[in-house]
């Protein structure tokens, strides 16, 4: 790929709420990779429902997603997300909307009062997949000025970007199954492989069964550390909330220190591009990233 690419940017609720550092890191990294982001036309996009709304009323979720897709179509640009959960919920909704024309028609009737119609052309893609399939990892490699040599990074995907694989294009794009590992290697780090990388972070049951949720956090972070991880990277801000924000609680419950820095995907790439740690919001995490940042600086 040469030149710049442009996307209708769907940041999702969490990057505008509890994880603002994901938003700013995305802006920084995309600017350097020649990824232009259209935000204006997407301002009135709503939440995808995150699967929670869908459990109450699937049609309602599908209508809201169809509305967001229609807004993206109006910008004439492909749709980019930075959240595994948004990715999954959008892909599931899009699958239902595009395989049944009658259903789409009836949903569109509810969008009509706003002057919107979803034509079925949106193909929502996570930044992770865009890097792989459209920008190309070679371009990322070319922008790396500070290879993360000596770091061992554990990938953590988040359920919704992995399952159900039937609606997430894994058949046509088998390379998606180790997308994070590929990015980790491109930025010069080593992969810390561990069995929990495609498991659940526990966030959805945080307020329902906190003990179980915390056990998931400690299981994953500790087994990543056993695999030699210096840090973990995730394309899902909800996973980040649990793995980072609740790591102290999880460590207390497990009666073991954990101390594992958890990075958002663009933060990892940004670090390797030499972007300032503060600009990437690395100071905004609950688990300190200081050691990691100084390790990167020392390696220079």
């Amino acid at each position: 790929m040469t030149g710049s690419v442009k996307y209708a940017f769907y940041p999702g609720c969490v990057s505008r709420g509890a994880c603002p550092e994901l938003y700013s890191a995305t802006i920084e990294v995309c600017a350097r990779l020649g990824i232009e982001l259209e935000t204006k036309g997407m301002q009135s996009a709503s939440c995808t429902g995150a699967g929670v709304l869908q459990e109450k009323n699937r049609r309602l979720g599908d209508t809201l997603n169809a509305r967001n897709f229609a807004l993206a179509e109006r910008t004439g640009l492909p749709l980019m997300t930075i959240c595994s959960t948004c990715q999954g919920v959008m892909a599931q909704a899009n699958d239902r909307l595009t395989k049944d024309p009658d259903y789409l028609k009836s949903i569109n009737a509810d969008l009509a009062p706003e002057g919107l119609e979803y034509k079925g052309t949106a193909n929502p893609k996570h930044l992770l997949w865009i890097l792989l399939e459209e920008v190309g990892l070679n371009r990322v490699r070319a922008r790396v000025t500070r290879p993360l040599k000596g770091l061992k990074i554990a990938p953590f995907y988040g359920c919704y970007i992995v399952r159900p694989s039937s609606v997430l294009g894994y058949q046509e794009h088998p390379e998606r199954s180790d997308a994070l590992e590929q990015v980790i290697q491109v930025v010069g780090a080593e992969v810390a492989d561990f069995p929990g990388k495609t498991a659940c972070c526990g966030f959805p049951i945080l307020t329902i069964n906190e003990k179980a949720s915390m056990k998931m956090v400690s299981n994953h972070t500790l087994s990543a550390k056993d695999a030699g991880a210096t840090a973990m990277v995730t394309p899902c801000p909800l996973c980040h909330l649990n793995l980072d924000g609740y790591q102290p609680t999880a460590a207390a419950q497990a009666r073991k220190p954990i101390d594992l820095s958890i990075l958002h995907l663009p933060q990892l790439i940004g670090l390797a591009m030499g972007i300032d740690a503060k600009a990437l919001g690395l100071n905004k995490h609950i688990m300190s990233t200081q050691k990691l940042v100084s390790q990167v600086a020392v390696a220079q």
């Binding site: 159900p164 694989s165 498991a199 526990g202 966030f203 329902i208």
Partner: peptide
């Protein structure tokens, strides 16, 4: 309510 909606079972 204890299910995390991780979709492992669906998959």
């Amino acid at each position: 309510w204890d299910c995390t909606r991780c979709m492992q079972c669906v998959q």
